[in-house]
């Protein structure tokens, strides 16, 4: 499944990036950046409420497929800018991480 399909199936809002061809191969939930960085796998959809500039840095380092901000968590302006510079896909939903993770597990 690619990010485009994820967006359509789960009705996610695209906050950053128009190139949604990246493959989603798994999912990781977490807000503590040290954990995410070392445990999230390349190609994971990362579900979090952390929408600050450091989340973008971690997404780049961990090579996740996309960030999904759950429960309508905010994306800071400087984070959006950094995401654009680094081609990080950022999505948003009003659902919580459990609901989205469960839905992803049914899709992949």
């Amino acid at each position: 499944m690619d990010v485009k399909e994820l967006v359509e199936k789960l009705n996610l809002t695209v906050l950053c990036s128009d190139e949604l061809g990246r493959k989603v191969t798994g999912c990781y939930c977490g807000d503590l950046l040290s954990w995410v960085m070392s445990r999230a796998k390349e190609g994971d959809a990362w579900l979090t409420v952390m929408g600050n500039i450091n989340s973008i840095g971690v997404a780049v380092l961990a090579d996740v497929a996309c960030i999904v901000l759950t429960e309508n968590a905010a994306l800071d302006d400087d984070a959006l800018m950094r995401a654009k510079q680094n081609d990080v896909i950022v999505l948003r939903t009003d659902k919580n991480s459990y609901e989205i993770a469960a839905a992803i597990s049914r899709l992949i």
């Binding site: 807000d31 950046l33 040290s34 954990w35 070392s38 952390m50 600050n52 450091n54 971690v58």
Partner: peptide, 16 residues
């Protein structure tokens, strides 16, 4: 509040 301070930094450095 920014997501840091998990106390996993130095252990991660050692691990990697």
């Amino acid at each position: 509040m920014l997501g840091f301070g998990a106390g996993m930094g130095l252990p991660n450095i050692k691990k990697y």
